[in-house]
Simulated assay, not measured.
Amino acid sequence: MRKKNNWTCFLLILAGIVLGGFIGSLFPDSWVNFGQTFGLTSPFILDLGILSVTFGLTIRITIGSIIGIFAAIVIYRFI
């Protein structure tokens, strides 16, 4: 029996999130695109005089991305 790689699972879950979000954006008025957004709505700017750094992070979780995560886990179990 082959040992499963954790990186494979991580990459499959990321691909499931991206594909689920893409499918949700294809149907903007559907239940697949229903979700919640978390994070900073406006970026945080740190100005040090000679260096200016902008921080910002927004995560959008939709029903499509959750379906993509479950599909990735099922695919991973069959690999």
Score class of each variant (00 low, 15 high):
71 A>C: 13
8 T>R: 06
70 F>Y: 05
55 F>A: 15
8 T>Q: 10
35 G>A: 01
61 I>E: 00
58 T>Q: 11
26 L>V: 03
19 L>S: 15
17 I>F: 06
16 G>Q: 10
61 I>T: 03
38 F>S: 02
36 Q>F: 08
59 I>A: 04
70 F>D: 01
20 G>P: 11
13 I>D: 11
33 N>I: 00
15 A>G: 15
34 F>E: 08
6 N>T: 15
15 A>E: 07
43 P>I: 08
40 L>T: 14
9 C>K: 12
16 G>C: 03
39 G>H: 01
42 S>H: 06
45 I>T: 12
15 A>Y: 02
16 G>F: 11
39 G>D: 05
14 L>P: 02
68 G>W: 01
77 R>W: 01
46 L>F: 10
62 T>P: 10
62 T>M: 07
14 L>G: 12
33 N>V: 00
53 V>W: 15
32 V>C: 14
20 G>Y: 04
78 F>A: 04
20 G>K: 09
10 F>M: 11
21 G>E: 04
73 I>P: 05
54 T>M: 13
28 P>R: 09
69 I>Q: 04
1 M>V: 05
22 F>N: 06
64 G>R: 11
67 I>A: 14
12 L>I: 05
29 D>I: 09
55 F>Y: 15
50 I>W: 07
45 I>E: 08
59 I>E: 03
60 R>I: 04
14 L>H: 09
39 G>S: 06
29 D>K: 13
59 I>W: 00
30 S>C: 05
51 L>T: 13
33 N>A: 14
12 L>A: 09
5 N>T: 01
50 I>H: 05
77 R>F: 03
68 G>C: 01
76 Y>F: 13
62 T>K: 04
38 F>Q: 03
9 C>Q: 10
47 D>L: 09
59 I>T: 03
35 G>T: 05
75 I>S: 04
37 T>M: 09
78 F>T: 11
46 L>M: 10
8 T>K: 01
76 Y>P: 10
41 T>A: 05
46 L>H: 12
11 L>C: 10
19 L>I: 15
74 V>M: 14
26 L>D: 00
29 D>A: 13
44 F>E: 06
46 L>T: 04
23 I>L: 14
79 I>K: 06
48 L>G: 11
59 I>M: 06
62 T>G: 12
45 I>D: 08
57 L>T: 05
43 P>S: 14
11 L>E: 03
15 A>V: 05
79 I>M: 02
35 G>Q: 02
51 L>I: 07
11 L>F: 02
11 L>Y: 04
5 N>C: 01
12 L>K: 07
75 I>V: 12
79 I>G: 02
30 S>D: 13
39 G>Y: 00
22 F>P: 01
44 F>T: 06
12 L>D: 04
43 P>F: 09
40 L>H: 08
30 S>P: 12
77 R>T: 01
53 V>Y: 15
13 I>F: 11
25 S>Y: 11
55 F>M: 15
70 F>L: 12
39 G>N: 03
53 V>K: 03
7 W>A: 15
72 A>R: 10
70 F>H: 03
16 G>S: 08
41 T>H: 11
62 T>R: 11
45 I>G: 04
58 T>L: 03
62 T>E: 14
37 T>E: 09
12 L>S: 10
77 R>S: 00
72 A>H: 14
70 F>P: 00
9 C>E: 12
15 A>F: 15
34 F>D: 10
